[in-house]
Design a protein around this nucleic acid. Structure first.
Lengths: 208, 208, 208, 208
DNA sequence: CATGAATGAGTATTCATTCAT
DNA sequence: AATGAATGAATACTCATTCAT
């Protein structure tokens, strides 16, 4: 029993180690160029052990996207007492960008998109999380802001989409075409210009 | 003379055929997994002939990117006599989306992004064209519209960026996660909602 | 333990087999025309295994050169008790010729020379061993003979060079232009004529 | 007629040009690495024309070795009135080395040797010229010197061999392992040391 | 007679995956 | 359960040679 438990623990540690190494390699080299042997070496296991845990490269990749992948992010804590609309929107942007840059969602998206033709389901799942679910979560915050009178009533689904689109255009899009991209130094200024636009569109006293 | 002419014609036909096949394969399998031999076979030429026309896989791919990139940069014909602001903006959106969908820039971008870690220069070049240069071209049209009083004076560089970002978010982003994506049937309605937003921000009588 | 030992034994057998096959092919076809796949097949291993042992064609070839080069540098056992000067010189010649013919240094040199334009370092290395280092080793024996009064004092570096040159001219040079050359039947007689010349030049009672 | 003559002249000029270019390439890159297309371009003809003149790479190479190759050299003029033995021997050495270095016999030998396994006859022919015939020519001079009492009577065939061997060892051998080798700056001194040895062996007052 | 575009067989090397120990 | 040696199929690219014009 105890032995069994021990074994299972070791095994799950190995699994975790493999996932960690694999994520590192896939993000760094892309799906095709990442090598199973390299991943195994990096995780301090033999290739055979690697294959015991994940029966193919594709499965390993899928496991990363599903288990390890970036969370859509929790925007629920974005509203704090005493905040102005701008404060909240700024916080939303920051959470968003932190996921994209610090949690390497940019790099992961790149790799997943590359595999769209060969593993479409994986990409669809990712879009569900990083596209739709995230949008729902943002939308909820925006609805709350509308309820509080901080924004004028509007189609928050479409609004969240537009807001996300502007932010992506300015920050995410260029990062997708650059290895190891980081947030630019003038990020704050750009964020506020995006917020300006959002408030011009949907601020409490925006024209109809 | 006749010989030369004939040869050149044959040769340029072959070149076009190769480009067609190559595009097909790169979009279907991605850069790394597309095989030069397969491309050659598909184009009904030998690998050696393929290499006579394009001296490396990278160059062949670059040629395809260039082919798509050229029209991406030309919005000069978007203004026609008697147009309203909305007419022009609509036409800009349509040109944009046609390049992304009909000319398959979406799929191509996916492929290029996949190679960011291994061929960063290629990606940087593509972003230069499909990101920056295209924006410049859009900006020129917007400036013209401002001059004509169709839009209120504003930072057209940033405006073009925001507009492009909104359009991308709604149409391009989902398409990147889907193989063989097509424009949705309600494209027109969505386009007009994006234009609504743009005019609300930068229309002639938009608030400051 | 037992596993490790066993594996290592198998592995070293394979390595030896690969070297044998490779030598055969390189000597038969020359460096460029010898094929890694053919060598692997001949050694009954897959190309991948071949590359596990030798990470490139160049390295494989270098290993063969090294194998022949090592004995080429060792003349230390040439002096035995009770020997006359002629005995020792004869033994030196025999060792020299054995390396050239039995160990196929002649053929190997031919192959290396062919690659001088494309892999100059390889040739330089080989000359260092088969030219200079061998000469040093011969020189050491000659110095010892001088110390023992068997040869008159002289510039042993140049002497060894001349001696080697005479031997090469008579035996090696013709062999370089002939496939599968063997020592001629009257080798002994020719060796002694060369020794005659050497003793005439540097024997204990040679004129100054 | 005149036309015919003209054509034949053009044709033979082309042939010569091809041979010139081919020699250049073979010497520079070696047989295998020299490319027919490169040779044709260098000679300003099409590959098809090249093949009209020489039906295969091998034949082209053979033609070079046979037609263009380095002459064995004419040593007959080496004896001039008033010369000492040393003067004559020095002149012989210089002629020898000039053929090897200036006329590129070193490089040619390297290339031919490389092809010994595949075209043995070619190598045999070359050795006949550069080994035996040259030796005969040298021998004739030495015999004349003996007749004039400048050298003591001896087996001039073997003597010429030894002399050539010493010279080769010092100058030619190292050059074979080096691309674009040139005569060393201290060539004269080395030549005289070789002559010293020769005279010690076969000078008029050499010991028996 | 001359061209140069086209060929197809060939090269070294890599990598996901399996299997004897 | 774990190893790591072994595999074989695949890949980009080259080159001597031919043939339609």
């Amino acid at each position: 029993m105890a032995l069994d438990t021990h074994r299972r623990k070791i095994s799950s540690q190995k699994r975790a180690g493999i996932l960690r190494s694999a994520k590192k390699h896939f993000l760094k080299y892309g799906y095709t160029s990442a090598g199973m042997a390299d991943i195994a070496r990096d995780a301090d296991v033999s290739t055979a052990t690697l294959y015991k845990h994940f029966s193919s490269k594709e499965e390993l990749f899928a496991a990363i996207v599903r288990e390890v992948a970036v969370p859509a992010g929790d925007y629920s804590g974005a509203i704090e007492a005493g905040d102005t609309a701008r404060d909240i929107l700024y916080r939303l942007c920051r959470i968003y960008l932190s996921i994209q840059f610090d949690q390497q969602a940019n790099a992961l998206m790149r790799v997943v998109m590359a595999e769209v033709p060969s593993v479409p389901q994986l990409a669809a799942d990712m879009y569900e999380v990083l596209g739709n679910r995230r949008n729902d979560s943002l939308m909820a915050v925006i609805d709350e802001m509308i309820r509080r009178g901080m924004l004028k009533p509007h189609d928050s689904a479409f609004g969240a989409r537009l807001g996300g689109g502007m932010l992506k255009e300015v920050f995410v899009w260029p990062a997708l075409f650059e290895p190891e991209a980081e947030l630019p130094p003038d990020a704050d200024e750009k964020i506020h210009r995006v917020i300006d636009a959002y408030l011009a569109l949907y601020g409490p006293d925006a024209k109809d």
